[in-house]
Design a protein around this nucleic acid. Structure first.
Lengths: 158, 158
DNA sequence: GTTGAAAGTTGCTGGTC
DNA sequence: GACCAGCAACTTTCAAC
């Protein structure tokens, strides 16, 4: 669990601005938020140190590089043994093509978002990496038509 | 659909390096990939122009800013009318707290990843934004324990 | 397509109000 | 927190290979 951090309005505006363009320069952020460049520097450093900003990620168009297929795979484990869950939790994100893994409450234990070159590759992924694990009891694959990013940040929230 | 772009080995290594640290400087990328700084500049510009790199995103720890809850909401529409689907597809990512929306094939039409301050906020989200839409026939909410990012990029793929 | 160096920007820090 | 100045680091450009 991460410690809750108190943010003021400037922090919130900074995060909002970064949400729109994570690569915006200090100058751009300063004018957008209405503070000086040096304050931007200090604030960003603080937010990174406190763990509010976990990092920066590049958004790659998988289709543009010849990986046109995406799928969501729901996974149900056979037994909820802590050791087995931990083992799978640690290994699954490293499987090739895994974009993200959700560990969730409910009927299904995991949801894997994967990219693949074709449907055969999706099938191979399920057979070679998932059903091979004894802990995996059941999988259900759904193809993704489209993924859209939201705001990811609530300016007036908290 | 995005046009497929031919990438050579240098492009792939660049994208892999960026996947590990999206904010790595040209100097760092140059030594990591084994080319000069200026080539890194040119390559990155090309990848951005071609749409392979769609952008850069900041990774914010929602829990650290007082939004500790995350949920996945499966949504099934009542009828598959193109206009209604388009309307919902356009509106949903803008709902407050939406991190990402998957439009998928199968029994459920959409999957929304949202963040929320508490379970009450999750309920409000479903009631105020989803069931209010006449096109929404059914929703199912699953709380998220944990989200883990994968590699998102396949070095030997394509 | 790549390189190296020059020139322009940007980012960080410390001092001052 | 703002403002300013100085320094280091970074990005981009361009002639040259």
């Amino acid at each position: 669990m991460s410690q809750k951090v108190e943010l003021d309005d400037i922090d919130r505006r900074l995060l909002t601005a970064l949400g729109e363009d994570a690569r915006a320069s200090g100058t751009v952020l300063a004018t957008a938020v209405g503070i000086s460049e040096s304050t931007v520097s200090l604030r960003l450093k603080r937010l990174r140190t406190l763990g509010v900003i976990k990092g920066f990620r590049v958004d790659i168009d998988a289709a543009a590089v010849g990986i046109p297929l995406q799928a969501l795979i729901s996974i149900r484990l056979a037994k909820h043994d802590r050791a087995e869950i931990d083992a799978f939790t640690a290994a699954a994100p490293q499987f090739p093509g895994v974009v993200r893994m959700y560990h969730m409450a409910g009927a299904d234990d995991y949801l894997l978002h994967i990219v693949a070159t074709d449907t055969e590759a999706v099938q191979s992924f399920v057979l070679d990496y998932l059903t091979r694990y004894p802990a995996v009891a059941h999988t259900r694959t759904n193809l993704i038509y489209k993924v859209q990013d939201g705001t990811s940040w609530i300016p007036d929230g908290a």
